[in-house]
């Protein structure tokens, strides 16, 4: 199964180290593969350095793709993480 969604970075700090670590944690907890794409560059969401090097400030939109058995569950959690501004206030 494959799910694709466009998500927007809403937290003011952008995709900094701790936010990236949260994405990696989620990816690690699921079987499905997580891919993030920005400006034609696609990275594996389970690699902290790759996620960091996307260098996404606030307002960045990216295409998020989950592939595998629990693709929907993973996408739902990623969506919630983005929506909840990575837990920032």
């Amino acid at each position: 199964m494959e799910v694709i969604r466009r998500l927007k970075i809403r937290n003011s700090l952008g995709l900094h180290a701790r936010a990236a670590a949260k994405i990696v944690e989620l990816a690690d907890r699921h079987e499905s593969q997580l891919l993030l794409e920005k400006d034609g560059r696609q990275v594996d969401g389970s690699n902290i350095l790759s996620v960091l090097t996307l260098a996404c400030p606030k307002g960045t939109e990216m295409e998020v793709r989950t592939i595998g058995k629990d693709a929907e569950a993973l996408m739902a959690e990623i969506d919630a993480l983005f929506e909840g501004k990575f837990g920032e206030n």
Binding site: A21, N47, S50
Partner: peptide
């Protein structure tokens, strides 16, 4: 502690 957590993630990173 978070310094060590991020180091653990880097250790597993495919780029490394």
């Amino acid at each position: 502690g978070f310094i060590l957590d991020s180091h653990l993630m880097i250790l597993k990173d495919s780029m490394l």
